[in-house]
Write a protein that binds this DNA or RNA. Structure first.
Lengths: 119, 119
DNA sequence: CGGTATCCGATATGATACTG
DNA sequence: CAGTATCATATCGGATACCG
């Protein structure tokens, strides 16, 4: 017997959301931008162990998906500011509730300490 | 200048949440279990393109993280039922809001149709 | 039925050096 | 400063065969 295949808009939309935010760095980057815009160098400084290459890729994808806005100033040396779009801001309460879910559901000892930079 | 490293419980908890649900299949599996328990064979049937190996791995990890409960019956042929734990159920409204976020933020044409099986 | 075991390709992430 | 380019590695996901 084959497998049933049925469209489900809710599951499909969830898959899309996970494609947009569900990887190692994107939720962190969104969180870092919650309080306002940041320059490339600051984002790099605040996310230890990320490489420039990966940071660039993640920012480009978030921009393509309409989550963040990239503003480039014609100066030398160059200055680039990243900020959350409306879509990105709409994500913040959901990420907050995910964070809260962890804090409600697990003891500190159950998940290894992670050291992420913040402002 | 080095990078600042500061603990942030909120970001840390978000990272943990993404570790628990942020991959290709786990949110789908949680959604599939939203309406009650399902057997291994049913989960396999309802997630086209997943392999037995990967399904087993995902279910084991969800069990380790306390999201689902695995109940094995001593019968021949064997029967195994998977269901959501309390932690898993607490995740449902959050996944729902992520799904809703996509539907509010994107046109259908902006994300490729995905065909996921449902009941 | 509900898995394991083995192999393998694809993708994600990272280190480093270089550039306009 | 804000990237690219290149190379290396690790993890993820998938195909297939076999097992209790």
């Amino acid at each position: 017997m084959g497998r049933k295949v049925i469209d489900n808009p809710n599951v499909c939309s969830l898959v899309h959301a996970m494609n947009v935010i569900g990887n190692k760095w994107k939720p962190i980057l969104i969180y870092l931008l919650a309080n306002g815009s940041l320059r490339f160098g600051k984002l790099l400084m605040f996310t230890p162990t990320i490489s420039k290459k990966v940071l660039t890729e993640q920012l480009r994808e978030l921009e393509e998906d309409g989550i963040i806005i990239r503003k480039k100033y014609a100066e030398i040396p160059p200055r680039v500011e990243y900020s959350l779009s409306k879509k990105g801001k709409a994500l913040l309460p959901i990420l907050k509730s995910l964070s809260q879910w962890t804090q409600d559901s697990y003891n500190e000892i159950e998940f290894e300490a992670c050291r992420i930079v913040t402002l």
